[in-house]
């Protein structure tokens, strides 16, 4: 466990240090890349609870990511056009804390609905059910004309956070970084709690869990709901980073990329998604600059990790995790 702690601390310092250096060196785009990595890492941290700790391979987490994005898009859209929200006669908002709250609540409710329906099945059926719900939401967003359909929604100015200037790349990065660290801290607490241990046990040996009278369905549903809520929060931040949201956030490829982030970094590792997101953003940016066929290299790297480096980047750096059982 000791070595993993060191790796985790190094990752946290790296993710914070690079943008600070970039700010000093006058390279704002590097800060933007770091922000992207931090937000994708946050989405991965959300997915990791379901995927890693819970063993629930969801190929539909883009639903929550996109839902968070649309929470930001819709609220800000009504605020900037001074129109009330359609159902409740409320104004929109440009305030991040409110948007986050809406995104988290929406993500949790959606995850409760999808989870309640999908968790009745398991294995491949669960994967395919989550994919199916993802496709439903995707097509709904593409063809519904109210909020831009496939064109998506553009926000003219990034939303605000009390006391910060979010238009400044570094300040927005620090905000995203703080959220990420807070959520990772919370996740560590969840994993160490009786709930977290029972959830891991439900993955490792459901029979034994049954014997002690715990109900895996409820455990998994709660994990899925928390996971969806965190991913939705990441979606709201991601949309704010781009000042834009569109159905592509809901596509199954996005779900695939979120899984890639988790696995590249290391499944069920606390900082796995952070490592994975840093690696993915770096590859995307630098390989993309070398060749237009860079996805071949990405695919090969991914394949190598799955086949030869189980445990992902963190596994390679920190060795096997200490077994809990």
């Amino acid at each position: 466990m000791g070595r993993e702690r060191i790796v985790n601390a190094a990752l946290a310092v790296l993710l914070l240090g690079v943008p600070l250096w970039a700010h000093w060196a006058g390279e704002p785009f590097t800060i933007t890349l770091a922000t992207r990595a931090a937000i994708l890492a946050l989405a991965g941290v959300g997915l990791n609870l379901a995927l890693g700790t819970g063993g629930l391979v969801s190929l539909g987490h883009a639903v929550f990511f996109g839902l968070g994005g649309y929470a930001m898009g819709i609220l800000a859209h009504h605020a900037q056009t001074f129109t009330p929200l359609p159902l409740w006669d409320l104004p929109g908002t440009k305030s991040m804390p409110v948007i986050w709250l809406v995104a988290i609540t929406g993500g949790a409710l959606m995850a409760a609905l999808i989870g309640a329906l999908s968790l009745r099945s398991s294995g491949v059926y669960f994967i395919m059910l989550t994919l199916a719900f993802g496709q439903m939401c995707f097509y709904f967003a593409v063809s519904s004309p109210t909020y831009g359909g496939e064109d998506g929604l553009s926000i003219w100015v990034r939303n605000g956070f009390p006391g910060l200037n979010t238009l400044d790349p570094l300040q927005f990065f620090l905000l995203a970084y703080a959220v990420l660290m807070a959520v990772i801290w919370a996740m560590a607490r969840i994993k160490a709690s009786p709930f977290g241990l029972a959830l891991a046990a439900a993955r490792q040996s459901p029979a034994r869990l049954d014997a002690v009278g715990a109900r895996p369905f409820r455990l998994r549903l709660v994990a899925f709901v928390i996971s969806g809520a965190v991913t939705a929060l990441a979606g709201a931040l991601f949309a704010d980073l781009n000042r834009f949201v569109s159905p592509s956030m809901l596509s199954w490829q996005t779900s695939g990329e979120l899984i890639v982030i988790v696995v590249l970094g290391g499944v069920a590792r606390l900082y796995g998604p952070v490592a994975g997101a840093i690696l993915l953003v770096t590859l995307e940016h630098y390989l993309g600059g070398i060749s237009e066929y860079w996805q071949i290299a990405l695919g090969a790297a991914l394949l190598a990790v799955v086949l030869f480096a189980r445990g992902g980047l963190i596994g390679a750096l920190a060795g096997r995790p200490v077994a809990h059982d």
Binding site: E27, P28, F29, T30, G152, P169, S246, S248
Partner: peptide, 16 residues
């Protein structure tokens, strides 16, 4: 053909 990638590239072209 991905909007979010395009936004990122636009930031790069403008900022870097």
């Amino acid at each position: 053909q991905k909007p979010d990638i395009a936004v990122q590239l636009s930031d790069k072209l403008i900022q870097a």
